[in-house]
């Protein structure tokens, strides 16, 4: 069973890192996975996106257009990628920047996480992508949140001063996803 997610945002928001952490976690679970990012004019302030697919069998296309989940870190990505969510799929939005009145489709689910606000409350916009990663893992079940959290901590093994903030960021993301799942029921 293949599961796919497309993440998009501004260069500098940590979209690529978020996707990479996700594939590292999938690998820890011995899943088959791909990470693909179209290269070119990638720069701070430009747009940045990546597609991660997990499966229990060989993955063919790593860049398919229609995906199960889209995660929009910012408004341009929301506008650009909303059409790429599969019917019945889910659009996860950074609700600090994207408001509900922007939603245009009736055949997909929308769920918001105020990721920018949370990261600012935690003291650094840099943990935005870790908030989103925690949220995404818990909400989608694509990888176990515990496994992803270990991968995040491993990334900061040499920078212990960042561990606490990233742990809190990840856990807040997970807690938000639990709330969102409950609200959906």
């Amino acid at each position: 069973m293949e599961k796919s997610v497309l993440m998009g945002g501004f260069g500098g928001q940590g979209v690529q890192t978020c996707g990479k952490l996700l594939i590292y976690a999938a690998n820890e679970e011995d899943k088959i996975a791909t990470f693909y990012s179209q290269y070119g004019g990638a720069m701070r302030g430009g747009t940045s996106n990546c597609t991660v697919i997990t499966s229990d069998e060989e993955i063919g296309a790593p860049n398919k257009k229609i995906v199960d989940y889209v995660v929009a870190f910012n408004i341009p990505s929301f506008k650009k990628f909303e059409e790429r969510v599969a019917v019945g799929g889910t659009m996860i939005v950074n609700s600090t920047l994207i408001s509900e009145d922007m939603y245009t489709r009736k055949d997909i689910n929308y769920v918001g996480v105020p990721a920018t606000q949370i990261s600012q409350d935690l003291g650094s916009p840099k943990v935005l992508n870790v908030v989103i990663l925690g949220f995404f893992c818990e909400y989608s079940g694509m990888v176990e949140p515990k496994v992803a959290q270990e991968v995040v901590l491993k990334q900061f093994a040499k920078k212990p001063q960042f561990i606490e903030m990233n742990t809190r960021a990840f856990e807040t993301g997970v807690a938000e996803a639990k709330k969102a799942k409950k609200a959906k029921k």
């Binding site: 990479k20 594939i23 690998n27 088959i32 996975a33 990470f35 693909y36 790593p62 860049n63």
Partner: peptide, 10 residues
């Protein structure tokens, strides 16, 4: 090619 060169997999 540029796709396989930049693709990340296990």
């Amino acid at each position: 090619d540029g796709m396989l060169g930049h693709l990340i997999e296990s």
